[in-house]
Design a protein around this nucleic acid. Structure first.
Lengths: 204, 204
DNA sequence: GGAAAAAGTTTCCTATAGGAGACGCAACGT
DNA sequence: ACGTTGCGTCTCCTATAGGAAACTTTTTCC
């Protein structure tokens, strides 16, 4: 076995500074203190080592995702707080109905979704505006369905909200509705023009 | 140096199964595919190695928090999705569908809140429409502050959103904003008439 | 089909994450 | 002062994360 493979020289992780700066450790320590736990107790609860937790809190290590997830659970830390770092604005958005390119736009034959505040990746609720294309009323061969809850607010147009367990609901501007999005649902515009709807979705 | 410290025998990470199962990798791969990126491109954008990304997607590694955070940013993955795994309880019982009725009314000197979908008590998000009364601009002696996140959508009027950590943000109809509501915040209507705002709040 | 390019996987290597336990250091009673 | 106890840090060690490049597979042209 030759000592060095000549040109290959696996260099490893190299530089890669931690952009979090001093934030992550501090937040975790604060959260632990808040709950009145000692290193020992917190580490035990999260099933990690006492020393590991100490290093994390002192920013002496770049912990694995798994470890952080456990700590979050134990300390009941909300994910957004952890991901909002390095002065990244917690406030974003600011937008008219105009869409702003990139991958924030999703279109199907029925809907035209535009995510709001998509620059903020760490949020738990997902707000978006959908244009429901005017079309003939047909039955739903496949419901929209996704684990969580959803709030819907009609901005313009007239539409009918079909749901799996309830009677269809005719809605107009200003009307709103709240439902478990695990229940099949779907909208049909009944006005001449497309209907615009604001949705806020919360995944479980 | 003695060979083995007898009883100490640093054992290392030991078992520690990955509770994520096969989920994490799949979600990241899906997200990448969705954006039409190759391993090379995605890895580059996230400033990580191609091989690393491959291993992550195939669940052959337990990536660091830092790496995951970068990927989330690059792939615009929402954090909640990533953290959903530990068979967390379903949520939302039966009466999970409700339409806005009247709703409760809460009035302060500045705001006039009307809860939406208030018949449904089991919901996690709280939507309401507020009328922000036109008044002189004054500084905020006490911020509004409550643990959680908030999404705000301007329905009508012009207003300025003051926040504790960011510059004031002038907003008009159609504008929206998302923030950690633990950060102090408050609105002032700057138009002649009152401003109307739709808020969706998620308590922690 | 076959060559070439592109995409993805595996190998190989170093740096390091993370656990066990030693150590440091208060704050106490006695 | 001296244990003693409880909390946090540091040392030491193994297993492994993650990058570079080799390798394999898939796709694309001709």
């Amino acid at each position: 076995m030759e000592p060095i493979p000549s040109e290959e020289t696996g260099l490893g992780p190299e530089a890669m500074e931690a952009p979090d700066g001093e934030i992550l450790g501090k937040m975790i320590r604060d959260a632990r203190k808040e709950k009145g736990l000692t290193l020992e107790e917190a580490a035990r609860a999260a099933a990690i080592g006492r020393s590991t937790l100490s290093k994390i809190e002192n920013n002496q290590t770049r912990p694995s995702f798994e470890i952080i997830r456990r700590l979050m659970q134990t300390l009941e830390l909300e994910t957004p707080q952890l991901f909002v770092q390095s002065g990244q604005s917690g406030v974003t958005g600011r937008r008219d109905f105009t869409r702003t390119g990139l991958g924030e736009h999703k279109e199907t034959s029925t809907y035209d979704h535009e995510l709001l505040c998509s620059e903020l990746t760490s949020k738990r609720m997902v707000p978006y505006i959908s244009t429901i294309k005017a079309r003939d009323v047909t039955e739903f061969d496949n419901w929209v369905r996704h684990r969580g809850e959803e709030f819907m607010f009609v901005l313009s147009g007239e539409l009918i909200l079909y749901t799996e367990h309830y009677r269809p609901l005719r809605m107009g501007p200003g009307d709103s509705v709240y439902y478990d999005s695990g229940m099949g649902h779907g909208c049909v515009s009944v006005s001449e023009e497309d209907a615009k709807v604001l949705w806020v979705s919360l995944e479980v």
